[in-house]
Design a protein around this nucleic acid. Structure first.
Lengths: 148, 148
DNA sequence: CAGTATCCCTCAAGATACTG
DNA sequence: CAGTATCTTGAGGGATACTG
């Protein structure tokens, strides 16, 4: 099955994204992959997802070109699931979700995991859409140019 | 029902986001709201979603503080669904998804809707996570500090 | 037009047993 | 350990009739 068959006919990129990774587990698998997870069992324990569902989602993510399978680095006969370049480029998506969640889905002072820069320990700066010159734009300054 | 009851116990902000808006329609409703849609019928026709499902999702989004209901501006007895400030702050999430989708889910030259700045018609610059000083960081430069 | 109420159905998801 | 296969359940979602 080619990747293109996973892509629907929606002209809106957001709709295609939702169709591809807008389920209960895919984005969390990607999140764990960013966190260095590679093995079936690691994902399974981390997420608590049923094995058949995980198997299905991993396969879909591989077919979509987000993950790729490699022989296990420890010499066992098993596979590891690694982010492709295309998968890595989901980083802004995960960060945007994380930042929104941190701001709006936790009570003041409620503990939550945080994303930091390794060397300095500093938190990541808040992401915002900008113009080419770097000026921040709000949603009201934009519009979607429709095709259909 | 208070908003907090909608929030689960996950310490990961990404997980809570997925739990809240990681279904087939919520994010597309938000996308349409950014596009200026306000009325039940507008969402319904735009998405082709079943009316009961749309009703359910709109209610959830209102309860989550992402949308709010207002009396219709045209004097009819109906409601309009407007993005709250919290809902507006989902803009980076939608833009990040859109940009990833544009890059990876369309064939070369395949038509798709695009987000532009109204006044100039220019496309939005590609969003990337940065440090406080504005330097772009890759995922490998970061790590999640876990709470549990 | 803007919803609500029902009915139905598919599929995601869970649990578990099984295999290399 | 890393999956696959099977069975079951429940929720998400679609279609449609109904109401103010």
């Amino acid at each position: 099955m080619s990747t293109s068959q996973l892509i629907n006919e929606e002209p809106c990129p957001v709709a295609r994204c939702v169709d591809l990774i807008g389920d209960r587990w895919s984005l969390l698998i990607v999140r764990d992959a960013f966190d260095g997870m590679r093995r079936f069992g690691d994902f399974q324990r981390s997420l608590g997802v049923a094995r058949n569902i995980l198997s299905n989602r991993l396969r879909k993510l591989v077919e979509a070109g987000i993950l790729e399978m490699q022989d296990a680095s420890d010499g066992t006969a098993y596979q590891e699931y690694i982010l492709t370049a295309q998968g890595e480029s989901l980083f802004p998506v995960v960060v945007a979700l994380r930042q929104w969640g941190e701001q709006h889905l936790f009570k003041q002072g409620e503990y939550h995991s945080v994303l930091i820069e390794k060397l300095t320990g500093q938190p990541i700066s808040f992401m915002a859409p900008t113009m080419q010159d770097g000026s921040v734009i709000t949603s009201s300054m934009t519009e979607v140019r429709k095709i259909n």
